[in-house]
């Protein structure tokens, strides 16, 4: 066992590259977070006219508008407001909803799990389907084999990828909810209520990913080192699973990350189709109600989600491909 641990230990020569990579990545993350927080703060101030007046309507008495402005601290100089905003953010205070009077952090806490659940399952499903499918298709269609299979796969995946998630959602509601009546089409209740939202989010990215996995795997199968592996007379499944796939995945992960962050945003539309009680429906309701503190808070959460995905992608890439930590510098 001691030998096994020695085997896994990273090399002393690589440690430097890893530290530099981690520091660089952390620096970029901090800058991105700062830009995000500042953008969320400025959002309210960029709105032409008085956001409080806009929110309360033209008929609201002036005294109410003034009181609300004071409560939101909008009368302070911008720099002071920014400082207060940052201070509150560090303390975990995101403000108070202008419509419900609830703390924004509480609203987010209530709604976040529903959104995370649907996005997480959708991503897991997309990965679980697309990687094996793309790999199998690559093996079947390598070197110009299996033209009919290639044509069927390519055209199907192009069409599926072209359908935006909310339209797919509407289609699924029609087929499975209205027509067949198999699963609920609105609200979050039992596990079966997840089926349609998750499917709507997963199908498009799964189609795109499967195509990429296929193309990347085909490219890797052309590489010189695959010939070396074949010369070692390993069984075919070794060649595909242990050598081709990990190499194909390095390119796939970059795009998978983009798809995942697009999926985070896609929840906004899908939640509204299925009346899903998550952050997506909250942000739309709040935008329409001009409940700016809630919008601000939810935008921040979505933004952090996207940054977290990007970070996860870079780390996964660094783990999978040792050259990427060096290449970046």
């Amino acid at each position: 066992m001691t030998n096994a641990t020695a085997e896994v230990r990273t090399l002393p020569g690589l440690d430097g590259a890893w530290t530099r990579f981690a520091l660089r990545r952390l620096g970029r993350l901090l800058v991105s977070v700062w830009v995000l927080v500042t953008a969320a703060f400025l959002m309210i101030h960029l709105i032409p006219g008085d956001p409080v007046r806009a929110a309360l309507g033209t008929t609201a008495p002036l005294s109410l508008v003034r009181a609300r402005r004071a409560a939101l601290g909008l009368d302070d100089p911008l720099v002071v407001q920014y400082a207060h905003y940052l201070r509150d953010l560090f303390a975990g205070r995101l403000g108070t909803s202008m419509t419900s009077g609830l703390p924004v952090s509480q609203i987010i806490g209530d709604r976040l799990p529903a959104t995370l659940g649907v996005a997480g399952y959708a991503f897991a499903l997309a990965i679980a389907v697309s990687i094996p499918l793309g790999l199998v298709m690559a093996v079947l269609t390598r070197g110009g084999r299996g033209r009919p299979a290639e044509l069927a796969f390519t055209s199907t995946s192009v069409v599926l990828a072209a359908i935006p998630e909310f339209l797919l959602a509407v289609g699924l509601v029609f087929v499975f909810g209205v027509h067949l009546g198999w699963v609920p089409v609105a609200g979050r209740s039992g596990p079966d209520s997840y089926v349609l939202p998750v499917l709507s989010l997963a199908v498009g990215p799964a189609a795109v990913l499967a195509r990429i996995v296929r193309v990347e795997t085909l490219g890797v199968l052309q590489a010189d080192f695959i010939r070396t592996v074949r010369a070692k007379r390993l069984p075919d499944r070794f060649i595909y699973l242990r050598h081709a796939l990990p190499n194909a995945l390095t390119a796939t992960i970059t795009l998978g990350g983009l798809l995942l962050s697009a999926m985070v945003a896609g929840t906004v539309l899908v939640e509204n189709v299925f009346a899903w009680p998550g952050l997506g429906s909250t942000i739309v309701q709040s935008i329409l109600a001009k409940d700016y503190p809630v919008v601000q808070g939810v935008v921040l959460v979505y933004g952090v989600g996207v940054l977290a995905v990007n970070l996860a992608v870079d780390v996964a890439l660094a783990l999978l491909d040792p050259r990427s930590t060096i290449r970046e510098s």
Binding site: S261, V264, G266, V268, I283, V299, G303, V306, L307, N310
Partner: peptide, 9 residues
């Protein structure tokens, strides 16, 4: 790095 829909919102 942010999805288009998020920027649009």
């Amino acid at each position: 790095a942010f999805p288009g829909l998020l920027l649009a919102l």
